[in-house]
Simulated scan of single mutants.
Amino acid sequence: MTALNSLDIAKPPAATRVVAAMSGGVDSSVVAALLKRAGYDVIGVTLQLYDHGAAVHRAGACCAGQDIHDARRVAEAIDIPHYVLDYESRFRDAVIERFAESYLAGETPIPCVECNRTVKFRDLLGLARELGADALATGHYVSSRALANGHRGLFRAADENRDQSYFLYATTQEQLDLLRFPLGEIDKTQTRALAAELGLAIADKPDSQDICFVPNGRYADVIERLKPGAARPGEIVHLDGRVLGRHEGVLRYTVGQRKGLGLSAAEPLYVLRLDADAARVIVGPREALGIREIRLRDLNWLGDVAPDALPEDGLDIAVRVRSTRAPREARLLRDEAGLKVVLAGEEEGVSPGQACVIYENARPGARVLGGGTILSPTARISTTSPDLALAS
């Protein structure tokens, strides 16, 4: 029997075709170069996701302009075939339009999750299969390992500061079985050192930071261009029912926000809820932000025990409700309304539209069991005004 190669595939590297997703950044370039050096049959693919004309000189973006040029240069330097695919229309339909609709609905979406779920993994994996590839490799900081059941599991990266499992929870089992993440066991410093060792011209290139299609973080401007006139002005209402002011559209606010409310009040006020149907922004004291229970939609499950087969007393888990927060202990339960996450302690700023990612435990390197989109967090404090109640 042929031994497994470094990608856990029972073929010699030279007989193993790998599509390397090349964004033009350091991480994906190192992945492609490492695979080439190891003797794999590597094909580089770069996706053009939006109009690169306006983004050629933008720092901190990806998948456009200069980045495509950088990916092409790396592919030439390591001597692999390289293709640029125009996925602009797919990206607009699957990611940008949904991003705008979600904000207008009073949510705070994560477009990177949707991009990975659809364009990058679903569509690009389809292309990889058409090219006869045995694997699709990316530069994400996350790990995948073979499981006893013949599938692959998704795990937090060794470098906790770079771990991107929060953005990849929606990867399906079918996708995960074909995906490989060669950087999951190293840190960024090692990656840059490898880029220099491999002679890559982009070794010192800055990391991408912004949402690629939102220049300077001004997402409201993007949404208003996509959906002109869709932002409705309305009232800013206190939790106790008092009208405190006016706003120009709920899309300009997010749960947990304190600055930029334009209110004069004796106490600090925070956005507690966005009622898009009534065009109201509901505010209140910080203690009203505390959340203990979360409901999810669009659940993606990667665990061994199916959600509908959970024990009656639930399952001990850990969850992450923001990409910048560490996993916190929780319990996954099923009741007549479906699945719910009960947190061991209160979390603030839990917003509909964000992801709740479920881990086996809170330890470093923990396995990702799945996750979903936060639907309706249940607040600890409700209001005497029934129509403003935060409880789901």
Rank of each mutant, 00 (worst) to 15 (best):
Asp277Met: 08
Thr254Asn: 05
Ile317Gln: 03
Ala148Ile: 09
Val237Met: 08
Gly132Cys: 07
Pro233Ala: 14
Val319Ala: 06
Asp51Trp: 07
Thr191Gln: 10
Lys120Phe: 01
Ala157Lys: 02
Ala55Pro: 00
Ala10Leu: 04
Ala201Ile: 10
Thr46Gly: 15
Ser264Gly: 05
Gly303Gln: 10
Ser29Ala: 14
Arg152His: 15
Val243Lys: 07
Ser382Trp: 00
Tyr169Lys: 02
Val18Arg: 11
Ala265Leu: 02
Ser385Gln: 15
Glu235Cys: 01
Ile223Ala: 05
Leu244Lys: 08
Asn116Met: 11
Asp387His: 15
Pro364Leu: 04
Gly284Ile: 06
Arg286Cys: 00
Arg258Pro: 00
Leu4Met: 12
Val319Pro: 06
Leu332Gly: 02
Ala157Cys: 05
Arg363Asn: 08
Cys112Pro: 01
Val30Met: 11
Asn161Arg: 14
Arg122Ser: 13
Glu185Asp: 14
Val341Cys: 02
Ser29Glu: 02
Ala276Leu: 07
Glu347Tyr: 00
Cys356Phe: 03
Ile223Ser: 08
Phe167Tyr: 14
Arg37Lys: 15
Ala94Gly: 00
Ala75Pro: 05
Leu390Arg: 15
Asn161Ser: 15
Tyr219Met: 10
Gln190Met: 11
Pro233Lys: 03
Ala276Arg: 08
Asp177Val: 06
His69Gly: 05
Arg325Lys: 13
Ala306Ile: 03
Arg325Trp: 13
Val321Arg: 04
Ser208Thr: 13
Leu183Ile: 08
Leu176Ser: 11
Thr108Ile: 07
Arg192Leu: 13
Leu124Trp: 12
Leu261Phe: 04
Arg72Ser: 14
Tyr50Gly: 07
Ala71Glu: 09
Ala389Trp: 04
Glu160Tyr: 00
Ala54Thr: 13
Gly229Trp: 07
Ile374Phe: 01
Arg90Lys: 09
Arg367His: 06
Ala337Gln: 14
Ala355Cys: 08
Glu248Lys: 12
Leu333Tyr: 03
Ala276Val: 08
Met1Arg: 09
Arg225Lys: 14
Arg180Ala: 03
Gly290Asp: 13
Val368Leu: 07
Leu302Ile: 07
Arg320Gly: 12
Asp298Ser: 12
Ala306Trp: 02
Asp27Arg: 08
Ala137Phe: 04
Leu310His: 06
Ala33Val: 10
Ile223Met: 09
Glu312Lys: 13
Ile186Glu: 04
Thr373Ala: 09
Leu154Trp: 07
His238Glu: 10
Val319Gly: 05
Val45Cys: 13
Ile282Trp: 05
Ser143Phe: 00
Tyr359Glu: 05
Ala157Ser: 15
Leu49His: 04
Pro285Glu: 13
Leu263Arg: 10
Thr191Tyr: 01
Leu375Phe: 08
Glu360Met: 06
Cys112Trp: 01
